[in-house]
Measured scan of single mutants.
Amino acid sequence: SAVVMEEGSPGEVPVLVEPPGLEDVEAALGMDRRTDAYSRSSSVSSQEEKSLHAEELVGRGIPIERVVSSEGGRPSVDLSFQPSQPLSKSSSSPELQTLQDILGDPGDKADVGRLSPEVKARSQSGTLDGESAAWSASGEDSRGQPEGPLPSSSPRSPSGLRPRGYTISDSAPSRRGKRVERDALKSRATASNAEKVPGINPSFVFLQLYHSPFFGDESNKPILLPNESQSFERSVQLLDQIPSYDTHKIAVLYVGEGQSNSELAILSNEHGSYRYTEFLTGLGRLIELKDCQPDKVYLGGLDVCGEDGQFTYCWHDDIMQAVFHIATLMPTKDVDKHRCDKKRHLGNDFVSIVYNDSGEDFKLGTIKGQFNFVHVIVTPLDYECNLVSLQCRKDMEGLVDTSVAKIVSDRNLPFVARQMALHANMASQVHHSRSNPTDIYPSKWIARLRHIKRLRQRICEEAAYSNPSLPLVHPPSHSKAPAQTPAEPTPGYEVGQRKRLISSVEDFTEFV
């Protein structure tokens, strides 16, 4: 048969007729292969192709491409040299491709048809291009793949890379869960390890502090508590009631339409708007009261037996805890006409967050109470924005700035309102402590230090009264110190430094 060459192609190359033996071998191979691939376009007849790359030819070592076609129900084999250009295909004639002069020997084609199974398996396991790669995943090629499931790999992101949580363990979102698992493993320790309690022994800490320079003076030496005195035992138990972190309780009120001037209507609300609910979820963490331990979680007086509701929101960081007394989460009882059960919590909070959804101005004093010092007013606006402002009593104007209003988005509203309420509550605590000038409020841990110092002074006084020969370590507060001759004046800087060093040991009130 003659071949018409394309323009620009090399000279004529004689194409030899395939021997009958080659056709029989390739026909047997075509019957084993699956003929249901995917359909081509209507211009080209339905056909199945599979590209198999052999590394070497037997005796020649030339890479070839073998295409199996099922045109007219008769499979045909096409061998081509890759750099050459194939002729145009037609549905009426068999596929013809040019070969190099080196394939002119018909014996070479017979060798190609009689490829060993080793070469076929190696060509099938190679990388296939384009559409033949999808075909190689079918059941027909499963014989050339190794048996057994593939090893499982770690989760992959859409980009093909490992997620960040699997790369950096410290930033993994499941870090707290692993800590819980470690605690569970520790709890399952053997009885021999049960006595080993991690941490620092208080006796060891005391020993280090006792021999430090801070205890060089007799006034700073630790003293032993009497065991037989019940009054001192009660004082030590009272110390446990003062937490070592700051605590805040903040009221949250929802004002519906037409309720801006009605205290009873505001306290009777059992739910609010959708934006109000989203605002609550951002204030803190939802907790169930019956599962809380009052000595570990500050509840601000809420009952854990269901008297004040089942849930509330709280927030904490390293040095403070805040609980929100939310009116809509507290039960509304029919027998309580004046809502006294709610007001006994909300009316005693220094700061209230008022979500004013009424469309009218909310005035300070609508919720009557002796300790309502500051109101954080949240007014929802259009386009997911809110107006946040402050209202306070006249005696609080020096501590709280009420002249600045803020426009905040719904997303950042819980954070801004919480921070403003916490700052206002700190100012309210300082303002409330002014009624007792001898006990200015600095912080909870300073209050613990003052309680310890008062307890020490009482013990020293009782020891001096029981044994008059012992001198008083600290003179009583009601006694007057003996007159001392004025010492020589020293520079102001040295006096300030000495006073600062003494105050650092005794108390921190002056620095606050």
Rank of each mutant, 00 (worst) to 15 (best):
D217T: 12
D217W: 14
S219M: 10
N220P: 14
N220V: 15
K221P: 15
I223W: 08
E228M: 10
Q230D: 12
S231M: 10
F232L: 14
F232V: 14
F232C: 11
R234T: 13
S235W: 15
Q237F: 08
L239G: 08
L239C: 08
D240Y: 03
Q241F: 06
P243I: 05
P243T: 05
Y245I: 15
T247A: 04
T247V: 08
T247L: 12
K249H: 15
I250R: 01
A251Q: 06
L253Y: 15
V255G: 00
V255Y: 02
G258Q: 04
S260Y: 04
N261P: 02
N261I: 03
E263M: 03
L264I: 12
L264H: 13
I266Y: 04
L267R: 04
L267F: 08
S268M: 07
S268N: 12
H271R: 05
G272A: 03
S273D: 02
Y274A: 11
Y274P: 10
Y276S: 00
Y276C: 00
T277R: 15
E278C: 08
E278D: 09
L280M: 08
L280K: 01
L280C: 09
T281H: 14
T281E: 13
G282L: 02
G282Y: 02
L283M: 03
L283E: 00
G284Y: 04
R285C: 14
D291M: 14
D291R: 14
D291E: 11
D291Y: 14
C292R: 12
Q293T: 14
Q293A: 13
P294D: 13
K296L: 05
G301Y: 04
L302T: 15
G306V: 09
G306S: 10
E307M: 11
E307Q: 14
D308H: 08
G309W: 08
Q310G: 11
Q310E: 11
W315N: 03
H316M: 10
H316C: 14
D317W: 00
I319A: 06
M320Y: 06
M320R: 02
F324I: 02
T332F: 08
K333S: 13
D334Y: 10
V335Y: 13
V335G: 14
V335A: 12
K337G: 15
D341R: 15
D341M: 14
H345M: 13
L346T: 09
L346C: 05
N348E: 14
N348W: 05
D349T: 10
F350M: 07
F350W: 07
S352W: 14
V354S: 01
V354Y: 02
E360P: 02
D361W: 03
L364P: 15
G365Y: 04
T366N: 04
I367V: 13
I367Q: 04
K368E: 15
K368R: 12
G369H: 08
Q370A: 15
F371Y: 12
F373V: 10
V374M: 06
V374G: 02
V374E: 01
V376S: 01
I377R: 01
V378E: 00
P380M: 00
L381P: 00
D382I: 02
Y383W: 06
Y383M: 07
E384S: 08
C385Y: 08
C385R: 04
N386D: 03
V388E: 00
V388M: 03
S389V: 09
C392F: 04
C392E: 02
K394R: 11
M396H: 03
E397C: 08
D401T: 04
T402H: 08
T402D: 10
S403T: 13
V404D: 10
A405H: 13
K406Q: 12
K406G: 15
V408F: 03
S409F: 01
S409W: 01
S409I: 02
N412W: 05
N412T: 06
L413R: 00
P414L: 01
P414E: 00
F415G: 04
F415N: 03
V416C: 04
A424P: 00
N425L: 04
N425Q: 04
M426W: 03
V430F: 10
H432S: 06
H432I: 09
H432A: 07
S433K: 06
S433V: 10
S435Q: 14
N436Y: 07
N436D: 09
P437E: 11
D439C: 08
I440L: 06
I440D: 11
Y441C: 13
P442Y: 04
P442F: 05
K444E: 12
W445Q: 13
W445C: 07
A447C: 11
R448D: 13
L449A: 11
R450V: 04
K453P: 08
K453F: 09
R454T: 14
L455W: 07
R456Q: 15
R456D: 15
I459M: 14
C460S: 11
E461I: 09
E461Q: 10
E461R: 11
E462N: 10
A464K: 10
Y465T: 10
Y465N: 09
S466Q: 10
S466Y: 08
P468S: 11
P476F: 11
A481N: 10
P482S: 13
P482C: 12
A483E: 13
Q484P: 12
A487R: 10
P489R: 10
P489K: 10
P489A: 14
T490Y: 08
P491T: 10
G492Q: 14
E494S: 08
V495P: 14
R498S: 14
R498L: 07
K499R: 13
L501K: 06
S504C: 08
V505G: 14
V505M: 10
